[in-house]
Design a protein around this nucleic acid. Structure first.
Lengths: 137, 137
DNA sequence: TTATTCTATAGTAGATTAGTATAGAATGTT
DNA sequence: AACATTCTATACTAATCTACTATAGAATAA
């Protein structure tokens, strides 16, 4: 069990943007430098986050990226969901074509319950939360 | 995010054993047939579970496997922990050699908290629970 | 002594992940 | 209009991991 680097790097990027929410567009190159992540990799993570409206981008000189919503309206769950393509511990939970064992499967319910717990937890932490908890700590 | 098949198959095997806890040794071949998982794959999962004392094995004819403890004393967390090698969402949580960013990393605390939530949830479900909840459902 | 059952180690094909390369499109500035 | 800057899109690759298989061996009840 391990959150993909995709999600972990993506979250770091989003927090970086959240910390600079009032400062106008932020360049990928600057995020990359601060977070020690390659520009190319970040560019790749931005695409799905843009599609989901969690990031807005401005092209050209003086351009850059910024959050699509205020930091209190974006959760870690949102980010992981987009970058991971869902938060589920077994594919049988979401898939429409039933596993032929599902009727007597003892585990399906368990994975469902655990996935739910996970989702609730991830959705309960906003970017603002994450920043503030670090200040007080 | 996806629990490995290792953990999922392992859990199914352990539940299969739990359901037959009073019936003496259970053969891998029978578990494999019921659960539709290859014998070879199950054999591989048994090894670490034995080391952790969650399974006892008896060799020779009439031999087989049985739980090392009663079903109410084994949790899903125990199983996943053994088969997954820990329940952590970022390697920085367990590793002793600090990431050089950890002091100002906003995410480490998040992954820690989420991992904990996960562990608590997994540890709260025993094999007996899993069996009983299915009966009443 | 033999059939049965578990044990141990090694190997492999395929999928996934992380990361890179290349070319292109938009836009503010001059 | 030209240009530098910044984002966008697609494709590729190496390395790792996962799921699974193969082979040989050890213990033991009958």
């Amino acid at each position: 069990m391990n959150l993909s680097t995709r999600s972990r790097y993506g979250t770091r990027m989003m927090l970086d943007l959240a910390q600079r929410f009032d400062e106008g567009p932020v360049k990928i190159r600057d995020i990359a430098k601060r977070q020690e992540i390659s520009v190319k990799y970040l560019e790749q993570l931005i695409i799905p986050l843009k599609k989901a409206n969690f990031i807005k981008s401005i092209r050209g000189p003086k351009g850059g990226h910024l959050l699509g919503k205020p930091p209190e309206n974006i959760t870690i769950g949102d980010i992981v969901n987009v970058l991971e393509g869902g938060i589920n511990f077994a594919s049988c939970i979401e898939s429409s074509d039933e596993c032929n064992r599902s009727s007597h499967c003892l585990t399906k319910g368990i994975w469902q319950e655990i996935s739910q717990t996970m989702q609730d937890k991830l959705n309960s932490i906003t970017l603002l939360n994450a920043i503030e908890r670090h200040k007080t700590a």
